[in-house]
Design a binder for these strands. Structure first.
Lengths: 336, 336
DNA sequence: ATGAAAGCGCTAACAA
DNA sequence: TTGTTAGCGCTTTCAT
């Protein structure tokens, strides 16, 4: 212990045993007498010894670290998933790296390199980028996709909401409430082309013998925050078509709030003239007035199932390729 | 490269040089011919070699990792700081561990152990726990406190808003608006006893020759989410005193929203009868109606200054002990 | 300009 | 039950 932290050798010396014995005690691995155990543990405690994970990793090729890639940790939904992922994983002795990809392929690629270099045992990835695919193939690290996943990565275990079903339910809720003309406000851009939510919206229409017009589907470009853009898009729609609709299904709460703002500005009553449903059941949906009906996706369960799948992978077993976490529609004022 | 990833030895072999030379090229450290450099880099590129950080850490006692301790990453304010911290640090080649302490001393202590074990080069800590002190002392890891810090850790570099000043400004804003009787709704519990925001509230009163009554200061216990508790506390106050006040300074937006809900339920108009100011300028303050006047604290700058201080520390220099990030009052409908 | 070799702290195989 | 030792991949003297 010349300087810095004590090493396993210092402990061995102080306890009058070999380093191997100390290692065995620490890892509760192999045989040793009760007396030895006590003595070693005592020395460890007194000296404030903490194992050097770099050395351990080097030896065992396991770091006890997990990488978590999210588009933006400051986003309500992702940070909530992150909280639960970290909780879950910390409970299993893992530490979690956060990586903000910003939906940028280049950065995502870099994170994969860095995480590989740091020997992470696994990666939990929230990404819809198809470019992710290449990274996944080259890295041999166990990866689980949560929430969204690239179309091209069909072989990666994934945990998500059943967005098609949830969106269909949300749309049917509006139909049940008497809506005759329902707009779809998409909130996704980039590669995330699966459009499950749009599919659900279409399914609901089909099931009721309806067919949405092209102009009923409104797409955000991603140039601005979706709340802002949704507001602009609805305002523009109103300019062009007038208020010829009586329902909006927005595929995110951000977008829903934008819609609400546009409607309020236009003097259109919600839910009186137009009923509105959002997605994610975030704080957003509870703070506005009227409060917004929204699809609760249970971030805690998404996280729990995601970690479960990853841990299964880490144990060498094979988790289900696809896991769905149930959703529920939380009815609030905006669709009364 | 028997199995798994290629090591520096494999690269050396393939390039027909020694491992030392490869190391020199990788780290651009020491002398080597241009031709050698090209050859090595070519092999590295073709083989997909990524350095093993465990080995590098073991040798150099540097991990390129930073720990970030926050009470709860799903909280709007913390996740926003975290986003910017990670951005900043990733730009400098560091990876960031997130650690959710939940304001729990025991968990915080464990995180310090784990992070020590994982050789993090530094820690950014958002914690008001006085127990933090002991951990700080035993770990020799450079630490910077952001936003809040324990009273006892006066020797740790810290970056925060000037909460006293900001709170004084917020309170004076209410006074300027004509408020005669202003309540203070605290939103802090646990060890975080500095009560800077309360101090600012008191200062403003003193500067105007006023003296708040004891019953004007309302404290949250932390038993429930502060939004809920604030609502209950204001409701109780109204039961006991009636609406004898015309202003509230809430030391967080969460609490402010709770206040707003209580007032709405009681049929009290904001800002007509009561003016309200919150703190943090979070999404909360923008979504409610009326929108809430709030103190913007610039999470990006808090993060930037925090990282700056930590990097200074890592370079062996001494950062200022205390750094203040400017705040500004964002005026909205609730205090018109 | 380059190579040989020691050693960072730890685990695990092998000995005793 | 315990000790000895090789070696994980890398950086860094010290030679050459």
């Amino acid at each position: 212990m010349a300087s810095g932290r004590p090493s396993i050798r210092d402990i061995a010396q102080l306890a009058g045993v070999s380093v191997a014995t100390v290692s065995r005690v620490i890892n509760d691995n192999g045989r040793f007498s009760e007396e030895t155990r006590k003595r070693v543990l005592k020395v460890i405690d007194e000296s404030g010894y903490v194992a050097n994970m770099a050395a351990r990793s080097l030896r065992s090729s396991k770091s006890g670290n997990i990488g978590m890639i999210v588009p933006d940790i400051s986003n309500d939904f992702f940070s909530s998933v992150a909280l639960h992922v970290e909780r879950e994983l910390a409970g299993q002795g893992y530490s979690v790296f956060v990586c903000n990809s910003g939906n940028d392929a280049e950065r995502e690629k870099n994170y994969f390199r860095t995480l590989t270099s740091k020997l992470v045992d696994g990666i939990i990835c929230i990404s819809g980028l198809n470019s992710l695919n290449a990274d996944l193939l080259t890295s041999r690290i166990p990866v689980v996709c949560v929430d969204r996943y690239p179309d091209s990565a069909r072989f990666v275990p994934r945990v998500s909401s059943d967005d098609v079903k949830a969106s269909r339910m949300a749309t049917e809720h509006l139909i049940d409430r008497g809506c005759r003309h329902i707009l779809f406000m998409s909130s996704f851009t980039v590669d995330y082309g699966r459009r499950d939510r749009e599919a659900g919206y279409r399914e609901a229409h089909a099931a009721h013998g309806r067919a949405p017009k092209e102009s009923d589907l409104i797409y955000i470009t991603g140039a601005k925050p979706s709340m802002v853009e949704a507001e602009e898009l609805i305002t523009r729609y109103l300019d062009e078509h007038g208020c010829d609709f009586d329902g909006i299904f927005a595929s995110s709460d951000h977008a829903a709030v934008g819609c609400l703002n546009a409607l309020r500005t236009a003097g259109i009553d919600v839910p009186g003239q137009v009923r509105l449903v959002g997605y994610d059941d975030s704080v957003y949906s509870r703070l506005t007035s009227p409060q917004i009906t929204s699809v609760q996706r249970h971030t805690d369960q998404l996280a729990a199932r995601g970690c479960e799948a990853l841990l299964t992978l880490l144990s060498g077993e094979v988790p289900p390729l696809e896991t769905f976490v149930p959703t529920e529609l939380v009815e609030r004022e905006s669709s009364r």
